[in-house]
Design a protein around this nucleic acid. Structure first.
Length: 220
DNA sequence: GACCAGGCACATC
DNA sequence: GATGTGCATGGT
């Protein structure tokens, strides 16, 4: 049982997730900021407010007063910092690439782009990688709390590994393939939301891992 | 009422 | 480098 076996199990159980749920590359960026430590349900409300006001476009966000933006994204929580983060990341994209499409088209190295994104305040590793993978379509594996929780509970990884160690572990264990990277992370989130809540000690009820204490033995 | 959700920056040691 | 805290809404 390796990481691809687990992927295949998840895929056959849940089916393709077709992430990220967004209509444009910029909408992915917006969602990536708004969903920081926030349920997607609440992010949807905030994005719907922006959509209704025709604001899901870089320059329109920049033209919107901070105060107004704050009211619109309120359902997503942390609205004071998130409204500023949204403006900051949008300003960076517009100033340097004109638009998210422009950023997507640029031919810079993946890790160079990653460093640029990480230099923006409010963009940490997961947010940067989410943007790289789902908005810019660059092959990088996204790690989140579900990934750490699920795979450490089942003994696949040590619980105290840092973000990039987990990321490179996955990247070294599965094919370097954009669609697999996209789908795998989405499936992990789906599994986490369904069966691996914070408090359930063993992903109780999880049909895939039933009876498994350890998915991958320490020897490999 | 407590706990949680598709994190991050910053302070402190 | 590890650990702790503030940020805030809406669902269970």
């Amino acid at each position: 049982m390796d990481l691809m076996d687990i992927y295949n199990r998840l895929l056959s159980h849940f089916g393709p997730q077709n992430w990220w749920p967004a209509e444009t590359p910029y909408e992915v960026v917006v969602g990536a900021i708004l969903t920081q430590n926030t349920s997607w349900r609440n992010v949807e409300r905030a994005i719907e407010n922006l959509r209704r006001n025709n604001l899901l476009e870089e320059r329109r966000i920049l033209d919107t007063p901070l105060k107004r933006l704050r009211e619109l994204i309120r359902p997503a929580g942390f609205y004071n910092i998130k409204s500023k983060r949204l403006k900051d990341v949008t300003a960076y994209i517009v100033d340097n690439y004109g638009s998210t499409e422009g950023l997507k088209r640029c031919n810079k190295d993946l890790y160079r782009l990653r460093e640029e994104l990480l230099s923006i305040k409010g963009v940490g590793r997961e947010t940067a990688d989410t943007i790289l993978l789902y908005s810019l379509e660059r092959p990088i594996f996204v790690v989140d709390n579900y990934t750490r929780r699920i795979f450490s509970r089942y003994g696949v990884i040590e619980g105290d590994l840092d973000y990039d160690s987990i990321r490179t572990f996955f990247e070294g264990s599965i094919p370097r393939d954009l669609e697999i990277y996209k789908e795998y992370h989405a499936l992990i989130v789906q599994l986490g939301k369904t069966f691996c809540k914070k408090r359930s000690p063993r992903c109780e009820g999880c049909p895939l891992f039933k009876g498994c204490k350890r998915l991958i033995s320490p020897e490999g």
